[in-house]
Design a protein around this nucleic acid. Sequence first.
DNA 1: TTGCTAAAACTAATGATATTAGTTAATATG
DNA 2: CATATTAACTAATATCATTAGTTTTAGCAA
Lengths: 190, 190
Amino acid sequence: MSPRPGIDRHQLLQAAAELADQGGFHSVTLAALAGRLGVRSPSLYNHVDGLPGLHAALTQYGLQILHERLLKAVAGRSGEEALRHVCIAYVEFARTHPGLYEAALQPIQPDHADTKQIGDDIVGLLLQVLAHYGLEEAEALHSVRTLRSLCHGFSSLERGGQFAMDLSLDESLAYMIQIFIQGLNAQRRD
Amino acid sequence: MSPRPGIDRHQLLQAAAELADQGGFHSVTLAALAGRLGVRSPSLYNHVDGLPGLHAALTQYGLQILHERLLKAVAGRSGEEALRHVCIAYVEFARTHPGLYEAALQPIQPDHADTKQIGDDIVGLLLQVLAHYGLEEAEALHSVRTLRSLCHGFSSLERGGQFAMDLSLDESLAYMIQIFIQGLNAQRRD
DNA sequence: TTGCTAAAACTAATGATATTAGTTAATATG
DNA sequence: CATATTAACTAATATCATTAGTTTTAGCAA
């Protein structure tokens, strides 16, 4: 134990995530976080390495939770059902935690191996989901990039209010997944 | 004419775009822009409505140029060829002007009707490209959302260094477009 | 219990930024 | 050539991140 307990790290990350979800990733400032934790800004330097360190920590935290959600979505499922559910879980996470999701997709610093690892775990999970389609290695990797582009693009555009038209977003999502699945099936046949 | 010429608006936007391409959208500050233009920051308030106004202006400028590039890409082309070229032009724009692209996809303020219009023009252009597939209205709109998700997701992840694996990005892009086209064709047959 | 130590909080100070108010300078037009 | 308009400027304020140095607190050992 420390000579003095101070701020709990999970409580810090949770508070930062709430700030992000309320005002976007850029609104996660040391001043705002300190205010929410009832502490002066310089005190936070005992817990994170300045603002960049806070941002990096939130990125890792976001990736962890995203990974958990995706794991839950594919648990006990396989094939097309697993694929549909993983896409929906991805978008749902971005919807319910927009700021934390935004944090999760910030560029990862080259020296943060543990954060990188979580990203790789997510890629591995998606590879496993796509294994059902029996693609060759390179094709499987291209497919994962396509899937990530779809899910991230949809989430990002939705959050940014870029889908302004009066048309169901959930129907668009279902349509998008369908297009991807049919494209994959066609690819498999070639 | 003005009693005093001052800074040319196009020159201002060009300088802001260069700042964005060099250091990202967030590095477009009044101080940095003023420095580049050889002027003090408060002088910029004669040309843009503070930092939010500068950002909004850069968003509109980015959308304009993106629209131009997409128009050029589809000029004299049709069907699958137009679709492939519009995707490639989209991603190429994001690659060569990462910061301006980032600006173009910032959320649009509800009161900026002219900026919104350019976004609608881009959607209209994509609808025209997809007309070749003879989809029903709702399906066509879902397809445009899918296409935008793909292109934006790919561009955004690529720029963020999220495609870390040692695997050709251009092959991934071509694969992605192929999946989309095959998905569309399957959709059309149903 | 009491004193020591380690860690976390604090205050004070600095530098960068956006922004506003008020002033000066330059130029197109009569 | 005088004027009005507009764009530039300086000065000042508030917010933020950051660093340095100090104080406080809580676990632990004597």
